[in-house]
């Protein structure tokens, strides 16, 4: 069992259910997006007594569906900034929940969002935990990275 894995599963399931009314479940298959798939990645930094990052990598199509539910719009009406806003908020909530497990004082940064194939690149950080979830036939991934001791 990876560190925070139980909590990541619990928080992610709760957030997606309460905000989007969607059931998401952990899957053992790893989220490895095919090259042609557009991936939207969101991340929040935690700094203070504990330093690291919480990231959410998600197919663009799933982020668009999430935004359409969140803002009660049809998928055609969802503008790119609302898709980023929705993913940023889901990332922010996940990071905020995980922050409560960490030593105080810690600060949560603003969410950052980008379209990517490789996920964010975060120099000086190492992957602590990564959990893949399934929702509506799509996979997405929540990762926790910790600042390396030597950075």
């Amino acid at each position: 069992m990876q560190q925070f894995e139980t909590e990541i599963c619990q928080y992610t399931e709760n957030i997606w259910k309460s905000i989007l009314n969607l059931d998401v479940k952990k899957t053992v298959e790893e989220y490895c997006p095919p090259e042609e798939e557009d991936v939207l990645a969101g991340c929040v930094h935690i700094s203070g007594e504990w330093e690291g990052v919480v990231a959410l990598d998600c197919p663009h199509e799933l982020a668009k569906k999430a935004a359409s539910i969140m803002f009660q719009l049809s998928e055609d009406e969802v503008a790119p900034d609302l898709i980023q806003d929705a993913l940023g908020e889901l990332t922010n909530m996940t990071g905020g929940n995980l922050k409560s497990l960490l030593p105080e004082p810690c600060f949560l940064s603003l969410p950052a969002v980008t379209m990517t194939q490789q996920g964010f690149r975060i120099p000086g950080s190492e992957l602590l935990t990564s959990v893949t979830f399934q929702c509506w036939g799509y996979k997405f991934k929540v990762s926790v990275l910790k600042k390396s001791e030597e950075s």
């Binding site: 991340c43 990052v53 603003l110 990517t116 690149r121 975060i122 120099p123």
Partner: peptide
């Protein structure tokens, strides 16, 4: 935090 693929970082 870095984005390398021509897509800008967005801060909602």
């Amino acid at each position: 935090l870095l984005a390398f693929e021509g897509h800008s970082l967005q801060f909602p």
